[in-house]
Amino acid sequence: TFVALYDYESRTETDLSFKKGERLQIVNNTEGDWWLAHSLTTGQTGYIPSNYVAP
């Protein structure tokens, strides 16, 4: 799992909003700078900017 370093507000319907400190499970990280992730807090799935999270 990864932890959010910053808050992120989604800009498209495929993005995932999250708050700093939220735990995220990475589903697919082969898309370059945008990873498909599942929030362990909200249960939602969407794309996140990879530079906003850390292991």
Rank of each mutant, 00 (worst) to 15 (best):
Y52N: 04
Y47W: 15
T45Y: 11
T1D: 10
W35Y: 08
S17T: 10
A4G: 05
N51C: 09
Y6L: 09
I26Y: 03
E13I: 09
P55F: 10
E31I: 13
I26E: 01
H38D: 03
Q25D: 10
D7Y: 03
Y8S: 02
L40Q: 07
E31W: 12
L16M: 14
P55R: 07
T45W: 13
A54Y: 10
L40K: 05
E22C: 03
S17A: 09
R23G: 07
G43P: 00
T14G: 15
S39Q: 04
S50G: 08
Y52W: 07
A37Q: 00
G21L: 02
F18W: 01
E9G: 05
H38R: 15
T42K: 04
V27Q: 08
S39P: 00
V3A: 04
L40F: 09
N51G: 12
T30F: 10
L16P: 03
S50A: 12
F2Y: 15
K20V: 09
P55W: 12
A4T: 06
Y8P: 00
D15L: 07
Q44C: 10
S10A: 15
Y6C: 08
A37K: 00
T14Q: 13
F2A: 05
I26N: 04
D7S: 07
Y52M: 13
Q44P: 00
R23I: 15
Y47G: 02
L36I: 09
G32C: 09
R23D: 08
L36C: 11
Q44Y: 08
E13S: 13
T12D: 11
Y47F: 12
A54I: 14
D15H: 15
E22N: 04
S39H: 10
L40N: 06
A54L: 10
L40D: 06
A54H: 08
L36D: 01
T41Q: 11
L36T: 04
P55C: 07
H38P: 00
Q44R: 14
T30L: 12
Y47I: 06
E13N: 13
D7R: 02
K19V: 10
L36Q: 05
V53S: 02
Y52A: 14
S10G: 15
S10T: 06
D33Q: 12
K20R: 11
T14R: 14
V3S: 04
S39C: 03
T14I: 11
E13W: 07
E22D: 15
T30G: 11
H38M: 15
N51Y: 11
L36F: 12
Q25T: 12
F18N: 00
Q44L: 14
N28E: 11
A54M: 13
F18V: 08
G21T: 02
F2T: 04
N29Y: 14
P49H: 08
T30D: 13
N51M: 10
E31Y: 13
K20D: 03
F2L: 07
Y52Q: 05
E9D: 12
I26H: 02
A54N: 08
T14S: 13
S17N: 07
E13R: 04
P49M: 07
E22F: 01
D33Y: 15
A37W: 01
R23P: 11
S39D: 04
A54T: 13
D7K: 04
G46C: 01
L24Y: 02
S39F: 02
W34A: 06
E13G: 12
G46N: 01
P55Q: 12
V53R: 01
H38G: 03
W35P: 02
L16Y: 05
F18R: 00
L24D: 01
H38N: 07
V27N: 06
S50N: 07
G32A: 14
F18P: 00
Y6P: 00
T45S: 11
L40M: 10
V27K: 08
L36P: 01
T12K: 14
G21A: 03
K20C: 07
L40C: 08
R23C: 12
G32V: 12
K19I: 08
N28I: 10
S39G: 02
V3F: 09
G21N: 05
S10L: 03
I48P: 01
F18Y: 02
F2C: 06
T1G: 06
V3E: 07
H38S: 11
Y6R: 13
S39Y: 01
H38K: 15
L16K: 01
N29G: 13
T45N: 07
P49F: 06
N51F: 12
Q44V: 07
K19C: 07
T1W: 15
E22W: 04
V27R: 07
Q25N: 10
D33C: 09
N28Y: 09
Y6V: 07
V3G: 02
E9V: 14
S50C: 08
T41M: 11
L16Q: 03
N28M: 11
E13T: 12
V3M: 07
G46L: 01
E31Q: 14
E31N: 15
